[in-house]
Design a protein around this nucleic acid. Structure first.
Lengths: 223, 223
DNA sequence: ACCTGAACACCGTTCAAGT
DNA sequence: ACCTGAACACCGTTCAAGT
């Protein structure tokens, strides 16, 4: 079944092995991400894919976190620019939607994006686009700046929540716990019923976004 | 220097070794968390602390994720209840503050809380408290239910952003990238200047919270 | 039922040595 | 300067065997 055996080892049949450069490394990392997910994008696995040892990668990449950040910015390339039609609200939501969709496809990347502040060119383009849309909507600059952070955090965190770490069982556990609570000790939970868990991810995401925008429009930043 | 050598190995000088029960395991995990942070709270390290092999822990804990969730709920015990004084807004902010403070002290726990939906008793108490405060503020139940999720996500994500993974360098990188952008291609970023990175974490957190609450108060949930 | 030693299948990162 | 083999110091989880 396994074919990394002796007989096939020396045949050169690996298709399009990327060069050992930063670009080639990132390209190979994206390929592994697409095929098997971020947890498999490890230094060792990547080195194997590039027919070298893990130590070689450290010439081009500081560490695993930086590698993951580079992968994120690469995927962000598909998101950047704003759509041309609709009023600013619609367009804002569409840009955020495209960012979110990308992250929903790779939740573990969202997770890493939360702690490793991205600063790649595609990320900067996204910020520029969002700022322009909020400006068009008449949101004061300082408020818009902090607002962009909040909107991106919301999208990123929502995606990160979907890493598939037995999370179906977590949900069942929470659902069960909520239903089993006596009204006497937890009256408000009983009162809201299933609302705590209702709605599709998309519906909750859209509501969250509208809620954030409504707040951003009317909450001034401190001096 | 190292004293896990032969001579000291058989002396029993470990203070207050917790019993091999779920409670004892969680207690030991919390102790390691407090002393050395979540990354050190591993099955192997924990087993070592409890003078046993890692395999023994699997009788009481399904896997590492479940262990971390149990640790989170344990620490959540210090947060639960609402303060008695002030109007609902002040009290809401204080409860969220106490939740946030705990997570800021353990950012990696926040990170794991984002993907492993908590469902422990202390977490349920926190939800109940937040729902009661929003109800007191006149927020419709369904809106409050989704709002609680948004508020907790904001607090958790903000804490998770602070995992110390060379993040000082990330910040510098972002700051430098923002400053180096030509006004021609990125006019809005140039226009908002330092606003994108301004403010203390506390100030941004407080603004985010007020922004969220303002939005939650006036954004209806879809039917 | 509970506990364990040993094994399987991995990790990130560093460093001395080579080219 | 770039690249590497080998090592160091770890991981989570399973399983057959013991009590």
């Amino acid at each position: 079944m396994t074919d990394r055996s002796d007989t096939s080892r020396s045949r050169r049949e690996r298709p399009a092995k990327p060069a050992l450069t930063r670009e080639g490394i990132v390209a190979a990392a994206v390929a592994i991400l697409r095929a098997e997910g971020l947890p498999k994008v490890t230094m060792r696995r990547l080195a194997q894919e590039l027919d070298t040892g893990p130590a070689s990668l450290y010439v081009y990449v500081r560490n695993t976190a930086e590698l993951h950040a580079a992968v994120l910015d690469e995927l962000l390339g598909t998101v950047g620019r704003a759509p041309a039609e609709g009023d600013w609200r619609e367009r804002l939501e569409r840009v955020l939607d495209s960012y979110t969709e990308m992250l929903f496809a790779h939740p573990s990347l969202a997770r890493s994006a939360l702690s490793a502040r991205p600063s790649g060119p595609h990320y900067l383009n996204l910020i520029e686009t969002l700022l322009a849309l909020l400006d068009e909507g008449g949101v004061p600059p300082a408020q818009a700046a902090w607002g962009v952070d909040l909107l991106l955090q919301h999208a990123t965190a929502s995606a990160a929540e979907h890493v598939e770490t037995a999370s179906e069982e977590d949900w069942d556990a929470l659902r069960g716990a909520l239903r089993g609570l006596p009204e006497r000790t937890h009256p408000r939970i009983a009162a809201v019923g299933d609302s705590l868990l209702s709605g599709t991810p998309e519906a909750r995401l859209a509501w969250g976004r509208r809620t954030l925008i409504a707040g951003i429009e009317r909450t001034a930043v401190p001096d």
